[in-house]
């Protein structure tokens, strides 16, 4: 039984997440949650990662208040109420 966390994605990507831009996931670790996210929503994967499995440029994935890009490791145990937030750097103006 995993820990329930909230995930938000930009409205522009909600096509890939059954029309929802906020939903819940259950996982034990951050790593697990990230894997589950793209397993449950395969359409999302191509928007978040390139063919080498790296997070795409201009995509920002925040675990609570930290971008996962600057975490040392991803096998962090989740706590109830944790937030996983997907953002895209906004270029329009």
């Amino acid at each position: 039984m995993g820990v329930r966390i909230t995930v938000t994605v930009p409205m522009l990507l909600s096509d890939c997440t059954k029309g929802r831009s906020a939903f819940e996931l259950e996982a034990d670790t951050l790593q697990g949650a990230l894997q589950l996210l793209v397993a449950e929503y395969p359409l999302l994967k191509v928007h978040l990662y390139n063919e080498h499995g790296e997070v795409r440029k201009h995509v920002l994935i925040y675990y609570n208040n930290d971008n996962i890009a600057w975490l040392d490791k991803l096998d962090i145990p989740l706590a109830a109420g944790d937030k996983l937030r997907v953002l895209q750097a906004v270029s329009g103006g």
Partner: peptide, 8 residues
């Protein structure tokens, strides 16, 4: 990461 698209 990749040099992909410049965003929407």
């Amino acid at each position: 990461g990749d040099t992909g698209s410049g965003g929407d």
